[in-house]
């Protein structure tokens, strides 16, 4: 790792002042240090957010929904019985993400902002498009782990298990910059890398992600998280499926289907959601929606299985909402 300067501000305002193009935020460090050790990121300075204790923890206020501080360790959401009563899909997703140690160290904000695990991106020797190079090596190379949906110049796959689960609840994120804050839909924190924008995230270099919010109305949804992995634990998703819906009188409303591991960003299968709106979650309907979710899939040479597996997991996840 290249030596760097280090600061540990006590307030968000201070942090935003310190952040910049050469001064990068670090929370748990489980992704940031990995990138730095492999030479992918070489910041001059690190701004540790660990002193922003206000951002650690979650609250629920009646009528105002749920607010999760960006510095909350993943473990705290995974193991809190109170939290599980409000949003059980999150602990479900987290239990299958990484390992206990990584969940103790890793934070909510860091998980949402982690970079792709594409093995070409992560190997310093490949000057790939996403890192500012001229081409995506995965197209000609081994692309078993790559995207089947929504890719432009770069076919990397989105790694987070948490992001799709939260997007299924219409989460938004609060961002604070030196000149004030903004709140955007969590889904809009992501944008498939394209053209001049060679990053998966839309956060600015000087912004701090302070919190994730879930609207009260969305909390009435039930949800399921399913994940296919290359081994039984400690694996990024081959495909992850987060589905949520309000089910009343056997009919589904506000259906959300969000996929991980299949596109450069968490992928909302909107047309499939539409198929289900107001319908009963019977097997035929769920199957049709599952097919719809992957209707636009363009599998690469090595990743056709993602489509087969993805369809089946969407179908199962939707069916489980009916049974719940």
């Amino acid at each position: 790792m290249k030596p760097f300067g280090y600061a540990r501000p006590r307030s968000v305002a201070e942090a935003t002042r310190l952040l910049g193009d050469d001064a990068v935020a670090i929370a748990g460090g489980t992704d940031q240090l990995g990138l730095m050790k492999s030479g992918i990121a070489v910041p001059e300075r690190l701004v540790s957010l660990s002193g922003l204790t206000d951002l650690d923890g979650w609250t629920r206020e009646r009528g105002k929904g749920l607010r999760i501080g960006a510095l909350t360790p993943l473990t705290d959401l995974e193991t809190s019985a109170g939290f599980a009563r409000i949003l059980p899909v999150v602990p479900q997703a987290l239990a299958l993400a990484a390992t206990p140690q990584l969940r103790t160290m890793g934070t909510v904000g860091g998980n949402l902002l982690q970079k792709t695990r594409c093995w070409y991106y992560r190997d310093e020797a490949f000057p790939c498009w996403l890192k500012g190079g001229t081409r995506c090596f995965a197209l000609e190379g081994d692309n078993r782990h790559h995207a089947v949906l929504g890719a432009e110049e770069c076919v990397s796959a989105s790694p987070s298990d948490l992001a799709p689960a939260l997007i299924a609840y219409d989460a938004s994120v609060e961002l604070r910059g030196a000149r004030g804050g903004r709140t955007i839909a969590l889904a809009d924190l992501y944008q498939a890398p394209h053209g001049a924008k060679r990053a998966e995230h839309t956060i600015r270099a000087t912004e701090v992600l302070t919190a994730v919010r879930i609207p009260e109305a969305a909390l009435a949804r039930r949800a399921t998280f399913l994940k296919a992995m290359d081994r039984k634990a400690w694996s990024f998703a081959v495909v992850s499926v987060s589905v949520a819906a309000r089910v009343r009188d056997g009919k589904a409303r506000d259906v959300r289907i969000v996929l991980g591991g299949v596109a450069p960003i968490p992928w909302r299968a909107r047309s499939a959601e539409t198929i289900l709106e107001g319908r009963a979650l019977d097997d035929a309907t769920c199957r049709a929606a599952a097919d719809g979710a992957f209707a636009d899939a363009e599998p690469l040479k090595d990743n056709g299985h993602k489509v087969t597996i993805g369809r089946e997991l969407v179908r199962r996840a939707l069916r489980s909402l009916a049974d719940a």
């Binding site: 695990r117 190997d123 190379g141 081994d142 634990a233």
Partner: peptide, 25 residues
């Protein structure tokens, strides 16, 4: 072990992409 055929590099030279069994396996 997965190789990148165009460059001959090993793509699975780490314990994240090269999957040895965990206790769950």
């Amino acid at each position: 072990r997965v190789l990148d055929l165009p460059t001959g590099r090993v793509l699975t030279a780490d314990l994240e992409s090269y999957k040895v069994p965990t206790v769950r396996d």
